[in-house]
Design a protein around this nucleic acid. Structure first.
Lengths: 103, 103
DNA sequence: CCTATAGTTCGATTATATTCGTACTATCAT
DNA sequence: ATGATAGTACGAATATAATCGAACTATAGG
């Protein structure tokens, strides 16, 4: 069984709007995305709200599969970024709308 | 047990973005919303894609609960409209972004 | 009143997601 | 090497959602 040293990130062209909307519709994941929108780059641990690692790992996997988040391995940490430009190109205005909502 | 003669439509202020995104993330419902965006008003039957009535009823209920669709009873038909202005006010740019995507 | 039509409700089934403990791996520092 | 740290993989439990048949209701028309 092989282990990962890099992540697979899908081409945004292969991501459907339904897929992206589903990924964004979970409160934990939306919270991650909101933080990444401000933080530029953050480790997984920096974004858990005291939640178990295995739960967070699941949510990051979903966000990556939906083309929303990029994860890069930096030593012992996995650093995450929003794929802003690519998502904006594929779904113009979507992140602006989603992230612009208050309360 | 009482029966309905009118529908309950939530105040958009009580609808969260997560709720709206979830409602939009289902392909059947997104299809309904896309059609309503063009059709102005349509009966439930006009929007099923040959799907069972009970399935459609479920999806319309979800769309109403998310504040996206308004249903008015007109005789034997239930006419649906997109709550465009209200949704646009609550979630500016969201419907534009979601409906603007091709493929 | 009888029948057809449009849609809901109920209930069961199946499918999909979430949560999280445990075991594991990779990297870094000592 | 040992230990600590960050995160994944697996597996199982639980929760949430989708699907759809069958029974039902309300309205309209003959």
């Amino acid at each position: 069984m092989s282990w990962m040293r890099t992540y697979q990130h899908p081409d945004l062209a292969t991501v459907t709007i339904e897929h992206a909307l589903h990924a964004l519709s979970d409160p934990v994941r939306l919270d991650i995305v909101r933080q990444l929108d401000r933080e530029i780059e953050a480790s997984c641990a920096a974004l858990d709200g005291g939640r178990p690692k295995s739960s967070m790992s699941h949510h990051f996997r979903v966000l990556r599969a939906a083309g929303l988040v990029h994860t890069r391995i930096a030593g012992v940490q996995h650093m995450n970024t929003l794929r802003r430009e690519e998502v904006d190109k594929r779904f113009p205005g979507l992140l602006d709308a989603v992230l612009g909502v208050k309360g």
